[in-house]
Amino acid sequence: MPEGLKLDTPRIEDGAAIWRIARDSGTLDLNSSYSYLLWCRDFAATSVVARGADSEPVGFITGYVRPQQPRTLLVWQVAVDAAARGRGLAAAMLDGLTARVAEEAGVDRVETTVTPDNVASNRLFTSYAQRHDAAAEKEVLFDGEVFPEAGHEPEVLYRIGPVAALTEAQAAPGR
């Protein structure tokens, strides 16, 4: 974890900051501000924020456990504020979140979608799989043509797992 930052569960009052970070990322599809407030209420247990020294969010990951695959965490969005980039924060948030959700919900697999032009996210999930010695499969989930707006890149589905470290977290004493 980068010095001076800490991981935490998002709270409703973090929704506005998370929306701003997503908006300013320049790569994410921006959802309504209302959706980020709901995310902080309904999916806080499967999401994470990184807080700076002032306790304000400087990064976040939103995710949820797939209803038909309860051992799979779907990572929806990952973003880091420009001032906090380049310190490994996204990887630290992903490691922390998946470890927590593995312990609390029995997850041992991770899925996400990434557009081919999102170099940072492609690196993040490829390195996550390598770091955890997990298989990573990729296939197009949604072709660009299915999106209502013209020119949308395809969304490539990453399936990562099983992740041994997550399985070990579930088997740890006290679980």
Rank of each mutant, 00 (worst) to 15 (best):
E3P: 06
G4D: 14
L5Y: 05
L7V: 05
T9E: 12
I12M: 04
E13I: 14
G15E: 09
I18K: 01
R20W: 09
A22I: 05
A22V: 07
S25N: 11
T27P: 00
T27M: 05
D29W: 05
L30R: 02
N31K: 11
S32D: 11
S32V: 03
S33K: 12
S33W: 00
Y34Q: 09
Y34K: 01
Y36H: 10
L38Q: 01
W39E: 13
C40G: 04
R41I: 02
R41H: 06
F43V: 06
A44W: 08
A44E: 00
A45I: 00
A45M: 03
T46S: 13
V48F: 03
V49D: 06
V49H: 02
A50G: 15
G52L: 06
D54N: 15
E56M: 08
P57I: 07
P57M: 09
V58W: 08
G59A: 15
T62D: 02
G63E: 02
G63R: 04
Y64P: 00
R66L: 14
P67V: 10
P67I: 03
Q68R: 14
Q68S: 10
P70N: 07
L73V: 03
L74Y: 15
W76D: 15
D81L: 04
D81Q: 14
A83L: 10
A83F: 10
A83V: 04
R85P: 09
R85K: 04
G86N: 08
L89W: 04
L89M: 12
A90V: 01
A90Q: 05
L94G: 07
L97H: 01
A99P: 00
A99Y: 05
R100W: 14
V101E: 04
A102G: 13
A105H: 15
A105V: 00
T112P: 01
T112A: 15
V114S: 10
T115W: 00
P116F: 12
N118C: 04
A120R: 12
S121K: 07
N122K: 03
L124E: 02
F125S: 03
F125Q: 07
T126G: 13
T126Y: 08
T126N: 05
Q130K: 13
R131L: 13
R131A: 15
D133Q: 15
D133K: 11
A134W: 13
A135L: 14
E137F: 12
K138M: 14
E139Y: 13
E139A: 05
V140W: 09
F142L: 10
D143G: 03
D143H: 11
G144Y: 11
E145C: 06
E145N: 04
F147T: 02
P148S: 08
P148V: 12
E149R: 15
E149K: 12
A150E: 15
A150D: 15
A150C: 00
H152G: 02
H152Y: 06
H152D: 11
E153G: 13
P154H: 01
P154G: 12
E155I: 00
V156S: 06
V156G: 10
V156H: 06
L157H: 00
L157P: 02
Y158V: 00
Y158W: 13
Y158S: 00
V163Q: 10
V163W: 10
A164Y: 03
A165F: 07
A165T: 08
L166T: 02
L166P: 07
A172W: 09
A172H: 12
R175M: 11
